[in-house]
Design a protein around this nucleic acid. Structure first.
Lengths: 144, 144
DNA sequence: GGCTCGATACTCGGATAGAGTCTGTCCGAGTTGCGTAGG
DNA sequence: CCTACGCAACTCGGACAGACTCTATCCGAGTATCGAGCC
């Protein structure tokens, strides 16, 4: 139960784009972050699909922030990389525990799911409340 | 980013033990839940290690609830199965974004970690608030 | 009758596959910008 | 001078391989209970 390491890479990519507020080619990102360019491309592509960054093809192309960092939350990044799937996928096994009453059984799985969904919602609510801009601002503020 | 399916199985095992409030052998659990006995044993062992259930060896042995269901939360189950690891493992990549100031860089990774830890804490706080007894009670209450 | 030994049933613990996912690599296709050559 | 072509740089998109985790299986070792046999 942990987030993909690509989430951290994605945060750093966004931070980098925000810091220099310009167009970065995939190779430039690679040189800055010292990460494999091939895998970097996979991550940037996901960010492009979810419209956190925009890409320009051809010469002088590259990646750019699609919207200001104040409009990008940590949840957006996780969602783009991990694909906002449910933490818990019930298989209906609880029906086997209460085989006598189908209604009970179905609600058994459902109730279990509801609680896990609520827990997931609590975590995501927090992540939705943190913007990348806040994060960068906190980092920048320390050095001064 | 999802919990192991073993979490659901563990919940069902506990529910089964609570419903009949007796000693269940591994084979009995297998017959009730229609799950592979081999894998079931791996799950029960984790539950034994974390003292959610107790095991008795030899003849007439088996598994039993180690403490009442009102003292077992969903978090306990997740913790026993998943091993309470952190959702987010920073690799210090943020240092590459702010290479000019080491202090900034270190805090970059730290701040990111803090936010994810807070999100995780929010989810776990919820799971800690739900006891298995509440869950079973809700299921039982529906059928009546 | 009491003690001991062995058989039985069960858990314990680890070794071992198979499947699926995550991480990382590679290559061909498509697109844009620029420079150059031809009219 | 203007247009058209071709080259170069870059992204797009998917195919592919390696590593790791999750799921699942199997087997030998250890242990408690019970019963039978022996003193």
């Amino acid at each position: 139960m942990k987030y993909s390491e690509a989430v951290e890479k994605a945060c750093c990519i966004l931070a980098l784009l925000a810091k220099y507020s310009g167009v970065f080619t995939n190779d430039a990102l690679h040189q800055k972050l010292q990460t494999s360019p091939s895998y970097l491309r996979k991550i940037t592509r996901k960010l492009v699909i979810h419209q956190l960054i925009s890409s320009a093809q051809g010469a002088n192309g590259g990646f750019e922030l699609a919207r200001p960092m104040s409009k990008i939350t940590l949840y957006d990044v996780v969602d783009a990389i991990d694909g906002h799937q449910a933490y818990f996928h019930p298989s209906g096994l609880m029906e086997k525990v209460f085989p006598d009453q189908t209604k009970k059984a179905q609600l058994g799985s459902t109730l279990l799911l509801q609680d896990f969904q609520a827990a997931q919602a609590a975590a995501e609510k927090y992540l939705k409340g943190v913007t990348m801009a806040q994060l960068i601002h906190k980092i920048q503020g320390v050095g001064k």
